[in-house]
């Protein structure tokens, strides 16, 4: 066999390459698949509840993935997060129990604190939650986010606390023994496996006729589709919105609030009575529910027109035939 050697060599090389690739793919080498950061920091990092205690928390909330790359692009300077000016890891100073270096501010506080007191030297730190909540004050977000506030429940926590790790990795991470390479490997896997929520399957009816209590005015013709399309257009480039609007129906939940996420939510009148409910005097009546919802969002998004008191912009005045006798009576 004249070419036997070469074939054997090629086969051996292919086998070696496959083997190497398998080893490489399984190991930390895959990190190179994430885009590198400008600062040289790891592109993504799993943040463990680092503890100084000998008995590291084996069972704990899932750790959080921090995508350094996306955040680096979103903020102006490193000091936004690395508030001391030293690009150290958060857990260097803020451990689960608090350390002297971090003024005994625990990791939990450092990540979740809201209403952070302004520091005199101008180096006011911000936590994940405080910064993200500030972002929702932007005009395109404020419509929904000024009228609703998140219910701080399990679903809210698991939006960030979602990294799957083995108990061994958890223990190593909490002790600070997990190597950077291994951390990056888990982080990369999580980034690659995280899927973005799809858009809602439907934008709802093009025209929703709101006529349940039409009395003084004609029924209101509400362009549901246009409102949805406009909201989605506003946030289509927002990575923050993409990360936190975890369900296709999340966007529906501002108006169709307090009920489980669904593409077929219950009608407003299901909960908002036409006349005051004696047992629930604080619950807005149907008329007010509509007005509060529409005007609240328009105010948050700084929609200039129609002004709140322009009644006939949304529901036309009743046909003059019906109005004439009333006017005559007045005169």
């Amino acid at each position: 066999m004249r070419n036997g050697k070469a074939l054997l060599k090629q086969t051996a090389m292919a086998a070696a390459c496959t083997f190497c690739l398998i080893i490489w793919g399984a190991g930390p080498g895959q990190a190179s698949e994430l885009e590198a950061t400008d600062s040289g920091a790891p592109s993504a990092k799993v943040m463990f509840p680092v503890s100084a205690k000998a008995t590291a928390p084996v069972a704990s909330m899932k750790p959080v993935l921090f995508n350094h790359l996306i955040h680096e692009k979103a903020v102006e300077k490193c000091e936004t997060c690395h508030h001391t000016g030293d690009p150290a890891a958060c857990s260097d100073c803020h451990s689960a129990e608090g350390k002297e270096e971090g003024k005994f501010i625990t990791l939990e506080k450092a990540m979740h604190a809201k209403n952070i007191a302004v520091r005199e030297d101008g180096k006011t730190p911000s936590s994940c939650v405080s910064c993200h909540e500030q972002q929702t004050a932007k005009r395109e977000c404020a419509g929904c986010h000024s009228t609703i506030s998140p219910s701080y429940d399990a679903a809210w926590c698991s939006t960030c606390h979602n990294v799957n790790v083995t108990p061994q990795q958890m223990a190593d991470g909490a002790n600070g023994r997990l190597s950077e390479a291994a951390n990056l490997a888990v982080a990369t896997k999580t980034v690659q496996e995280t899927k973005r929520a799809a858009s809602p399957a439907t934008l709802g009816p093009a025209k929703a006729i709101i006529d349940a209590i039409a009395n003084e005015y004609e029924p209101c013709v509400f362009n549901h589709k246009r409102h949805m399309a406009s909201l989605m257009e506003n946030i289509k480039d927002s990575k923050l919105a993409a990360a936190f609007h975890t369900q296709p129906e999340t966007l529906c939940a501002t108006c169709h609030h307090h009920s489980p996420l669904s593409l077929t939510p219950p009608k407003c009148v299901s909960c908002h009575p036409v006349a005051i409910d004696r047992m629930q005097p604080a619950r807005p009546q149907l008329k007010a529910a509509y007005h509060l919802q529409c005007m609240g969002c328009h105010k948050g998004m700084d929609v200039k027109r129609p002004v709140n008191t322009s009644c006939t912009s949304c529901h036309k005045a009743k046909a003059p035939a019906a109005e004439a006798p009333a006017e005559a009576a007045e005169k």
């Binding site: 005051i276 005097p281 604080a282 807005p284 009546q285 008329k287 007010a288 529910a289 007005h291 509060l292 005007m295």
Partner: peptide, 14 residues
């Protein structure tokens, strides 16, 4: 009231 800016109820509940 169009906005429920006026809420009626027992004073202690209000």
């Amino acid at each position: 009231c169009t906005m429920d800016a006026l809420t009626f109820g027992r004073r202690k509940d209000l």
